[in-house]
Nucleic acid binder design. Structure first.
Length: 1018
RNA sequence: GGGCGCGUAGCUCAGCGGGAGAGCACUUCCUUGAUAUGGAAGGGGUCACAGGUUGGAUCCCUGUCGCGCCCA
């Protein structure tokens, strides 16, 4: 079987040393986990970042403005995706000819860090939570938070750098940096000055025990027994006497049409009825301002026909209820019998009376009915009591109906019915001093007082108890309440000064249209959110943040707007950080001498962190002093050549893209970005989200340790990041395989190029067709790769280049040319032309891949150039001469390669039958029916192309038993074994009659080579 | 429950009204001078499912299911 058994030394000398075999130190296996850190050290040593800046100074800027990750904890695979994608963008833009400067940043303020500090530094040590009314304690706590954020910023920076991300890691931005805090304060002052910042109120989760507001994440749901009540709201005003909606509802339920008398009767009945609500928080009744219904629910009017004489719900009582719930309600109300009178549409009811009306002064107002998405007919009555002071849904319904409330003359104010200690205020008439929850977290006397009054008013029809899941403070484990609190808002719909009566919402919607969204559906997504969002709540009653650094005139709502005071505040923040706001005597320091600090309230609320991050453009892209590398950005829309991109996960349509848009539109009238690119989320191999409990988490640190960062980078580039990405052991395995294939092809080029002298470079016009074909392919790929990088379509780069490297290079061009490259004499034009072309290919492939395989391409660059201080990343994509394009040649070679497939197919049959092994053992006869096809094949060395020792072309269809394939009609192949003897050097069969007498066991070509080599070494 | 997306070979992705494709993986064979490499041939898909539009649908429309993000 084997031509060269190990025990046949008679074959003569070993010719391997006389061949130009590939020679390289570039290892076949990357050893990336070890190699990559060395390359990182090199980048640092040669100051790659500095060199990138100096070589690209003056070019158009491409600014990928970093969305700041939160500085707590190690990075996860989602961070890795985000940063690698950013790095591919940054590096490719640089190689496309831009000055692409990436300045990373961090989000540092906020709740999660506060909790962590409270837990680690206080609770676990048994220390009480610091008293934030004490300036010293406040500042000490803030400094602990700062230290924590600083620590994690450092950890994450190392992890990001390890991914191969290039950027100004020595000078990142941070929302907690003093200049940043100063600028954030200046930005909120701008909203004060333009009139959009106002103080309103909103219900928040409140712990009476701890006297603090809680975030959703600080709340846990536990079983709790609540008082429940069914309360009647007497109908007060009907929309129209015609009762159109209700009559339509009756027709729908098959009750037929009404005549005029019938309508009058209907009108009278409903006027005498009550809408019934059910609630688990009786204490919120004094704060009730509306009733919510759902237009998806069927309602009817019901009459009590049988009940005990002392029952709360009397015989003859008329109640409006959801049909699905009526019998449950009457059962709870101990009604023995009832009848359904007719279908009702609640839209016909304009307002009810408050059930406590007449029990105390202050409940005379109309209680309107509104449609609410949160209303269901699963439990209760189908109507939901709505107290905007005490519930999120309640608040939202109330706020989204402001226009109608104003039109109807209803007071839109949201009452402060309960104070911080859980006591009713005077805004709950008749109940002041009663308590909802006491200091110990126990139920107070409020519910009982309300229930007694409702009963006295005749509007209580049932009561009970319910055990259900209810929010409790994560810390004290005591129940919490929703409580109206003063908050600061940015108005969405108020006209801005210096605009044509445009609101922040108008400007933001316009800015969305002017921005390029990729993928395009991002525009829809953010547009819908901006169009529908309520006013922006920017205040938090917290410690670790930038304060809403304004003063409010005592006894009024007026915010002090004074340039001198503002400058003083910003100046202090710049020097000392925002701690200055909380220091003892701050009001005096900032207000005096112009104002008397006793006349002003210093606002100690801090800004929501989304406002912080919404300001990153202001304190990074516009701060030439601290970020000189970004100085002087001139955006295309301003007549310049620079572009600003934001790139984050698709969740940031509601997050950072959104807050940055609003912040920038409110202060600058336009978006802070020109292009917004979004990516999906990382899921496991089955497309499910990762979680520790499921055990499907892939940690980037593990992948890097086992396989290297370039594998992760290849995964990011090859995946469709506009959708969700999947990762897991099997997926990683296939990318590792792909990587090996690419690496080895690079390695072979490096090994071959070891024998290439620039002085032997062959001119384009002297090259064989096969070389010119490869150069043509480079022209095609050049435009494809540039186009793909310009459109951020990296998977296309990977698909095109890996197909090129495997199919065109490895399996075809390199395979064909090995004979010349290894065996030809040094002077061979074919050999020199092939090396010239391989050099051109290598230059391009190694730069085209560099933005993705940042480490490997650098390693290859070093192996090729031996450079001690340069880098592949300092190159731009090499220009590819247009004269290399030759579509005619490409078409011709498609014919040749198609014919080649028939030959290799025929040889495969011979191989299976053990008649040949290597293709060099064959010299087939190829029959070509078509004259022009045959002429094409005759014009090249088709034997060389097929890697056979000989090949004969014949006209005609060929014999019956010749090999043929439907894909190439008219071509057939008769396999013939190569005749002659096998060349001991090239392994090709040759006719010994032509052997060189001096080198009889090698072919004449090899003899020439040996002679030349001998002469050279002499 | 609502909004925005996605569902094509084992994996990653093309295609997008008229032949279901590529690279990797897999199987078999060859090479042993890219050698823990290289070459060749081959197998593998009811294009999530169900309706509809069309002379014709993976592609257009509607619905269902599954998955994700954002809300509720």
């Amino acid at each position: 079987m084997n031509d060269k058994p190990a025990d046949s030394p008679a074959k003569g000398p070993d010719y391997a040393p006389t061949l130009y075999l590939p020679v390289t130190d570039f290892p076949m296996r990357g050893g990336l986990p070890q190699k990559e850190p060395e390359i990182l050290a090199r980048w640092k040593a040669i100051d790659l970042y500095g060199k990138l800046r100096s070589t690209s100074a003056g070019r158009p800027k491409f600014v990928l403005h970093d969305g700041p990750p939160y500085a707590n904890g190690n990075i996860h695979i989602g961070h890795a995706l985000n940063k690698i994608l950013k790095d591919i963008v940054t590096r490719s833009q640089q190689m496309l000819g831009k000055d692409s400067n990436y300045v990373p940043g961090w989000d540092c303020h906020g709740l999660p860090i506060e909790w962590k500090i409270e837990e680690d530094n206080y609770r676990s040590k048994g220390k009480p939570k610091p008293d934030f009314t004490n300036p010293a304690a406040m500042i000490a706590f803030r400094q602990e938070c700062r230290a924590y954020a600083t620590h994690w910023l450092g950890v994450q920076r190392e992890e990001f750098v390890r991914l191969g991300v290039t950027g100004d890691w020595a000078n990142p931005y941070a929302t907690m940096a003093f200049p940043a805090e100063a600028q954030i304060a200046r930005e909120i002052m701008k909203f004060a000055a333009n009139g959009l910042l106002y103080r309103g109120s909103k219900p928040v989760m409140w712990s009476v025990v701890e006297k603090t507001a809680l975030a959703e994440a600080e709340v846990e749901y536990e079983d709790h027994v609540s008082d429940t009540i069914w309360t009647a709201f007497p109908v007060r005003t009907l929309r129209e006497r015609s009762m159109d909606s209700t009559r339509a509802a009756m027709e729908k339920s098959g009750e037929g049409a009404l005549d005029i008398e019938g309508v009058d009767e209907l009108f009278a009945e409903i006027n005498a009825a009550s809408v019934v609500i059910w609630t688990t928080t009786p204490w919120t009744i004094p704060a009730n301002r509306a009733i919510s219904y759902s237009r998806k629910i069927a309602y009817s009017l019901y009459r009590v026909t049988e009940a005990a004489a002392d029952n709360w719900a009397k015989v003859g009582g008329l109640y409006i209820l959801a049909d699905r719930l009526a019998s449950d309600v009457f059962k709870s109300a101990r009604v023995e019998n009832f009848e359904r009178v007719r279908a009702i549409d609640p839209r016909d009811i304009l307002a009810c009376s408050h059930p406590l009306n007449h029990r105390a002064a202050g409940y005379e107002f109309d209680v309107p009915l509104f449609d609410g998405d949160h209303v269901t007919d699963d439990t209760g009555t189908g109507f939901v009591h709505t107290a905007p002071s005490h519930g999120r849904d309640d608040f939202d319904v109330w706020m989204s109906n402001q226009r109608e409330l104003i039109a109807r003359g209803i007071d839109t104010n949201i009452p402060y019915t309960v104070d911080a200690d859980g006591y009713y205020t005077a805004e709950a008439p008749g109940f002041a001093g009663k308590r909802v929850i006491d200091d110990k977290g126990k139920k107070g006397d409020a519910n009982d007082a309300v229930i007694a009054e409702l009963l006295a008013a005749g509007n209580l029809i049932a009561r009970g108890k319910l055990k259900h899941q209810y929010p409790h403070s994560w810390r004290s484990k005591k129940p919490v309440i929703f409580r109206n609190t003063p908050q600061w808002f940015i108005a969405m719909d108020k006209p801005l000064p210096q605009t044509r009566n445009e609101s922040l919402r108008d400007l933001a919607l316009k800015a969305i249209k002017e921005t390029r969204w990729a993928p395009a559906f991002g525009e829809n997504r953010i547009n819908g959110m901006i169009a529908n969002r309520p006013d922006w709540v920017v205040s938090r009653q917290r410690a670790w943040g930038v304060p809403i650094a304004v003063f409010v005139k005592k006894g009024g709502h007026e915010i002090l707007i004074d340039e001198i005071v503002n400058a003083r505040i910003a100046q202090a923040f710049e020097q000392e950080g925002a701690d200055a706001w909380f220091a003892d005597g701050a009001a005096q320091r900032f207000l005096a001498p112009e104002y008397d600090p006793d006349d002003y309230e210093k606002i100690d609320d801090v800004l929501d962190v989304w406002f912080d991050s919404g300001c990153t453009h202001a304190f990074t892209l516009e701060d030439d002093e601290h970020f000189p590398g970004l100085a002087g950005i001139q955006r295309v829309r301003d007549g310049g050549a620079d572009e600003i991109m934001y790139l984050e996960g698709s969740d940031q349509h509601r997050g950072w893209f959104h807050s940055s848009l609003l912040e920038s539109c409110g202060t600058r009238g336009r978006a802070p970005y020109d292009v917004v690119l979004t990516h999906g989320f990382v899921l496991d191999e089955k497309g499910q989200k990762m979680s520790k409990s499921v055990g499907n988490v892939v940690a980037p640190q593990t992948v890097i340790k086992d396989s290297g960062a370039d594998i992760l980078r290849l995964w990011v580039a090859a995946s469709d990041y506009s959708d969700d990405l999947r990762i897991g052991p099997e997926i990683l395995k296939t990318f590792i395989e792909t990587y090996r294939k690419l690496r080895n092809t690079m390695r072979w080029m490096l090994g071959s190029l070891a024998h290439f002298n620039a002085s032997e470079r062959v001119a384009f016009n002297d090259m064989p067709e096969l070389e010119r074909l490869m150069l043509h392919r480079l022209v095609e790929l050049d435009s494809l790769v540039r186009e793909a990088y310009l459109t951020f379509d990296y998977k296309r780069v990977i698909a095109a280049l890996s197909a090129f490297m495997t199919s065109d290079l490895s399996a075809f061009y390199f395979d064909v040319r090995k004979d010349s490259l290894y065996c030809d004499p040094p002077s061979s034009l074919v050999r020199q032309a092939a090396l010239t072309v391989i050099d051109e290919i290598f230059q391009r492939v190694s730069t085209w891949f560099a933005p993705i395989l940042a480490f490997t391409c650098e390693e290859a660059f070093i192996a090729r150039t031996g450079s001690a201080d340069s880098s592949v990343h300092l190159q731009t994509f090499p220009a590819t001469p247009a004269e290399w394009r030759n579509d005619e040649l490409a078409a011709k070679w498609r014919v040749i390669r198609n014919a080649r497939r028939i030959v290799t197919g025929a040889l495969e049959i011979e191989r299976a039958s053990k008649r040949i092994g290597s293709s060099l053992e064959a010299a087939p006869v190829v029959y070509v029916a078509d004259d022009s096809t045959r002429a094409i094949l005759a014009s090249v060395d088709f034997s060389e192309v097929c890697i056979t020792s000989g090949l004969t072309l014949e006209a005609g269809e060929g014999p019956e038993d010749a090999f043929r394939d439907a894909e190439a009609p008219g071509i057939s192949v008769a396999p013939v074994r190569a005749s002659g003897v096998k060349c001991a050097r090239s392994w090709r069969y040759f006719d010994p009659a032509f052997a060189d007498p001096e080198f009889p066991e090698v072919s004449p070509r090899d003899a020439r080579a040996l002679r030349e080599l001998k002469a050279k070494s002499a």
